[in-house]
Design a protein around this nucleic acid. Structure first.
Length: 533
DNA sequence: AACTGAGACAACCGCGTACAA
DNA sequence: GTTGTACGCGGTTGTCTCAGT
């Protein structure tokens, strides 16, 4: 197709000729104004270039323009020859072996495309670069690490060796991507500072101390999966909140209008359910998994830098290498941009696999009911355990400063547009992101708020996808069948009382103040009911 | 059918470096 | 040592295709 267009251009006269473009590689001091063509090469131009190289060999590219009558700058000629015309070029998609090699090489070398191409006969640096960038983008979107663990470890070892031998350059290179992430991050922040109030969604600059900690933590995996983040990630950041929507606000004709919740509920929630920042317990990276929208009113003026700010923007680290601290018993889930992404790019992470392979995850609503009923017994068991110990999670009480930080953190990710707010708090609870199948006993937590009347019931389940489907939830806003089913499910999941409340909320007859939410972290979904707000 | 977003690919641009005059 | 030229490299941008909505 592209070639066809070029053929046409062959016949038409080059409308992409740029007048007065001097060859930036030196025109031999002729001083004459040379009209150099830009844009795609035509087959005629290719033929001229090939013919010239055959006769004169490679090099002296400016001579091509002079002697062969090609209206292209030497630089362009060299590029065209190197990337497309020279013999022994390997065309077509990369083989699996090549892809693996590229990954390994990149782990060792970083963005040294030319050096990498030397290891891949017939492949050009440009080709490799394009491949890698596309791959990185894709994996970033999917929340996958840049390097797979098997590639990471040996590569890092070699990287360490090269550090000691390469001296300054090698050492610097090791953190290239990592540093790059932060540099770009800063750039984003800067750009946002200029537009304060316009984009309240941008994370704050990472705390340098956390950055250092990350480096320490990454000591054995420093090369792993720091995906470079570029400005388009503004968009990505917004998307990244999608998995954590709260259906209580899914359709404004359901419970409260979202603005109402944001204005009246968020502060209460934040103040009532003080959950210590995950950072206080361990690396920020795990906590990054489960942040989502803020319930704040979108007023970010009081935001202050918090170390968790990196979580959405920054890297999904190589899980096996990360000290998870005390925040969960299973590896953290990768940062996902959206449920769609997750579905689109099923992750190899073991926990995910177990989820995906679960027959309960077919998204059928019946499965939910079945699942819920199956779980109800174990839920009871858990409720007993929890009530025996404490109704509040130890360590989840936070002092006011922590709360403020938390609140700020939430504000940082506030999306004034999105109606998905209520699950923020839910997702702040790392513990609930871990149970993932019926084989595991679901976590069922109740958080006590500051007020005696405030409770938060959280249930962690493998939530059928259908409940996360916005369309479906929209349907649910009516009095249709889905609502009944959902209420049934709620009854089983939460008990009759809460389910009744839920039903009242859905049909608008509720007299109590509750916020319902469904949260999703990958396939680990949770539901919560916040009472007494 | 029109629109949109993502992916793949090609080319350009700016910068750094090597080298000769 | 300085300057100009050629070249290589890496980052970025533009274009086209395709799939999904």
């Amino acid at each position: 197709m592209r070639r066809m267009k070029n053929e046409i251009e062959d016949e038409m006269l080059p409308n992409n000729m740029t007048e007065s473009q001097l060859n930036d590689e030196g025109n031999g001091g002729s001083g004459s104004i040379v009209v150099l063509k830009k844009g795609p090469w035509t087959s005629a131009e290719d033929a001229i270039l090939v013919d010239y190289v055959k006769k004169h060999g490679e090099g002296n590219w400016n001579a091509v323009q002079k002697h062969a009558g090609l209206s292209r700058c030497g630089k362009s000629c060299r590029l065209r020859w190197a990337n497309h015309l020279r013999p022994n070029l390997k065309k077509g998609a990369f083989t699996a072996q090549e892809e693996r090699l590229i990954t390994e090489l990149h782990a060792k070398m970083g963005n040294k495309w030319a050096r990498m191409s030397a290891h891949l006969p017939g492949r050009t640096d440009n080709e490799i670069k394009n491949y890698w960038n596309t791959r990185a983008k894709r994996r970033q979107r999917a929340g996958l690490p840049l390097y797979s663990p098997e590639v990471c470890s040996p590569a890092v070892q070699e990287s360490h060796q090269s550090q000691s031998t390469d001296g300054v350059n090698g050492g610097n290179k090791v953190h290239h991507d990592l540093l790059n992430s932060y540099e770009i991050h800063d750039a984003i922040i800067d750009s946002v500072k200029d537009n304060q109030g316009i984009s309240p969604y941008v994370p704050e600059p990472p705390d340098i101390s956390d950055y250092n900690n990350m480096l320490k933590g990454l000591d054995s995996s420093q090369y792993c999966n720091f995906t470079s983040s570029t400005s388009p990630n503004h968009k990505r950041l917004r998307e990244s909140t999608m998995p954590f929507f709260g259906s209580s606000c899914m359709s404004t004709n359901l419970f409260y209008p979202f603005d109402h919740i944001r204005a009246n509920t968020s502060d209460k929630i934040a103040q009532s359910f003080g959950m210590q920042s995950p950072l206080d317990h361990g690396p920020s990276l795990h906590s990054s998994m489960c942040y989502s929208h803020s319930l704040s009113n979108g007023n970010s003026s009081t935001s202050k830098p918090t170390s968790e700010a990196v979580k959405l923007e920054l890297p999904s680290l190589q899980y096996p290498e990360i000290d998870l601290g005390s925040w969960g018993t299973s590896p953290p889930l990768p940062l996902l941009d959206s449920v769609d992404d997750f579905i689109k790019y099923p992750t190899p992470i073991s926990t995910m696999e177990s989820d995906c392979s679960s027959p309960q995850n077919n998204g059928l609503l019946d499965a939910l009911v079945y699942q819920a009923k199956t779980m109800s017994s174990s839920k009871k068991h858990y409720s007993d355990e929890i009530s025996n110990s404490s109704t509040a999670i130890p360590g989840h009480r936070a002092d006011s400063s922590t709360l403020n930080m938390y609140e700020t953190e939430l504000e940082d990710y506030a999306d004034p547009v999105s109606p998905f707010g209520a699950t923020s708090i839910l997702n702040e609870c790392p513990v609930i992101a871990n149970a993932n199948s019926l084989d595991e006993t679901p976590l069922d937590q109740t958080f006590n708020g500051n007020s005696e009347n405030q409770t938060m019931s959280v249930l962690n389940i493998t939530w059928p996808d259908i409940l996360l489907d916005e369309d479906w939830l929209q349907q649910d806003s009516g009095n249709g069948k889905n609502q009944t089913i959902t209420t049934d499910a709620m009854s089983t999941l939460f008990g009759d009382d809460l389910a009744t409340d839920y039903k009242h909320m859905t049909d608008g007859t509720s007299k109590s103040s509750q916020v319902w939410g469904f949260g999703s972290c990958a396939r680990n979904h949770s539901a919560f009911c916040l009472s007494g707000v």
